[in-house]
Amino acid sequence: MDLTNSLQKLAGYRPRKTQKSKETYDKGLILLKNGGYSRQGDEGWETLEKLALAALDQGDVEIADQCLQLIVNKFPNSPRVDVLQGIRMEASEPPEVALKFYDELLESDSSNAAVWRRKASVLRDMGKIDKAVEELSAMLDTFYTDVEGWIELADIYASCEQYTYALQSIAHALLLAPQNTFYFIHYAEIAYLAGDITLALKIFLVAVDMTDDDDGPVPPQDSIPVGLTLRAWYGVKLCTRRLITEPRLVSSSASQTAAPSAAILSNIDELSAERLRTAYMNMKGESAPKAEKELLTALAVIIQ
């Protein structure tokens, strides 16, 4: 793993208390106790970093401190370690302290994007959303290629129901990673929330086009949509339903996206319903409910 990647990972770190961190914690602890990390070279140090993060996740500050001490002794002045120390500070100190630490780091080296993003996330956790947005936008203005940063910005905007701004942020992420279907679906979902149904429909269809298995052994109409494709088809269905039942939405697109003609729209609507039924049959082993509304509610549970 190269440095930029690791820094981005650290920048996006959030405590989650997952099962996985528990596992890392238990395994890493043995390694720490018998000193095995030092025999493995670079990989050992990476494990130690992971253990520190997992320990913080599990709330064991003591172990995290032990790891951190070892890492700091080995790599003084490393920006990656700085970020790690910041995360450790966030865990137990009040956010103001961590904020001050990050500010000092930025003062001495203003080009450390990871520290900048952590600062924004601390601000967000403190409830200072406006400040967080400000910092994050300033950071993205300099480090444009930070895709995760754009997604986080969009997330912040979406949490404040500023869907237009959120859409703009994700648009940048799309430009940066046009191969990532997940961002497309995210974009479409936010567009749907923003009320730009025609745009959402188009993007959902693009996502379908990207994910469905058209090189597979069966022709696309016989394939079974799963995963992201299913989610995209579900979105398509929601969009067509709303466009058909509420015709005024057709002309109220903020991005001036033209809606497909009525014939195509109903065709797409039928196709998506058929796709969703196929997926339902395949997963539940029984035929899907006849009423569209019931089908959609049942599928919503599956997709979740």
Partner: peptide, 11 residues
């Protein structure tokens, strides 16, 4: 993209 998808699925 709609027509593309419809063509792909044989509609």
């Amino acid at each position: 993209v709609e027509t593309r998808i419809l063509k792909k699925y044989g509609r």
